[in-house]
Amino acid sequence: MTKTHRLDLLKNSISYFREAVSYAQQDTAETSQWKFAILHVVQAMELAFKERLRRVHPVFIYESIDKSDKTVSLRVAITRLRNPAIGNITITDSDKIKIEKAYDLRSQLTHFEFDHSHEHIELKFAEIFSFMIFFYRSQLELETSEFIDENQHNNVIQLVNARKELLERAQQHVATLENETVWICPECSEVTFIVSEQQCCFCHRKEAIVDCPTCGAENFEHDLIDISNAFDWAIDEGRVTVENFGMEEVCCPECVADTKQTIEDIKRSQYDEDMAMDEYYYQKGK
């Protein structure tokens, strides 16, 4: 039974990987081709992770060690593989981010409207393809010929090399900039997001840079956190009122704890004042 399961995981992973490569090596700019390439390569990666966990112990491929009705998600698989007590595999934080972004991209392709360009998907494919070559060889002890033929390998390597060349050019461009702030891009995870241009010069992701209303520090717009749940909300005769204690609805991650503490301090102070006034009028009425 165990042998059959092993063959299912590994053979299916290789099958999906070969399908992904088949789509990727086609000389076309059709987004649909790259859509299937990323769908298949991420599926291949998820199955390969489960196979590696199975080799540690079959129970680790399941979400709960007490139940065998659902296997682990890709994110849980990464966590277990990196755990020194389980997989003890070195997967860098940078690779982890790229893997999770590819996984999220697959979810978008499958479940939501999709508007990414083929260049964007090609970039993600190149990242995962490179990682999987390493993973198959070093972690599943496969020869290259066991999961991809030589011609396919050479064709896709050209894509990986193209990505490397583009990254080098972007990094060279960044190096020529003076008095510019450059951040890690939330899309490609490279230090190529030029703040003043509000765009990455490598993957071309655009995002607004906004000031935190509390401390004034610049942040990616998506990084600001909604703290309105700390306000006092009330409904009176169908009309919604809110006491925000002089605070904005969002702030940067660095300010969240202090801002919420300030609100709690204000609430406590107001409560103490109300109690003092109630006591004052109570004593006065005696």
Rank of each mutant, 00 (worst) to 15 (best):
A20D: 00
E197V: 06
K70D: 03
Q139M: 09
V242T: 13
E30G: 07
V256A: 03
K286H: 15
K124T: 07
I266S: 12
E237I: 08
E143I: 08
F202E: 00
T79M: 15
D265Q: 13
D66H: 10
Q26T: 06
S15C: 09
D272N: 11
Q152H: 07
G285Y: 11
D27L: 14
R55H: 13
I14G: 03
A20H: 13
E264G: 11
E51R: 15
R75I: 02
N179K: 15
V160T: 13
E207A: 12
A234Y: 04
K284V: 08
V41S: 11
V240D: 15
S13I: 05
D149F: 13
H153P: 06
A29C: 05
A217E: 09
E30L: 14
M1E: 15
P186K: 07
E119L: 15
K11V: 11
W233S: 02
V59K: 06
H222F: 12
R54W: 04
H118S: 06
N244M: 01
A102T: 02
E221Y: 07
R6L: 12
F112Q: 04
E46M: 12
D226M: 07
V56Y: 01
K50P: 02
T79C: 05
C252Y: 02
F220R: 01
L142G: 02
F17E: 04
L140R: 04
Y136E: 01
E146P: 03
S196D: 12
C200R: 00
Q199C: 05
F134E: 13
Y62R: 02
E187T: 05
E51N: 15
V76Y: 03
E197M: 13
I128Q: 06
Q43K: 06
T262N: 14
E243T: 14
F114K: 05
S73P: 01
G238E: 06
K101D: 07
I99S: 07
K101C: 07
P84A: 13
E127Q: 14
C201G: 00
A208I: 12
I121G: 01
E254R: 09
S73V: 13
V174Q: 04
V21H: 12
V210F: 00
I263M: 09
C252G: 03
N12C: 01
V21G: 09
E190Y: 09
T31E: 13
V156N: 03
S32W: 06
K284H: 10
H5P: 00
Y280C: 10
S94C: 05
T90P: 03
F129L: 00
L53C: 13
F134M: 07
A170N: 01
S228E: 08
E207G: 10
I121N: 02
M132H: 06
W183P: 02
M45H: 12
T110S: 13
K124D: 07
D265A: 14
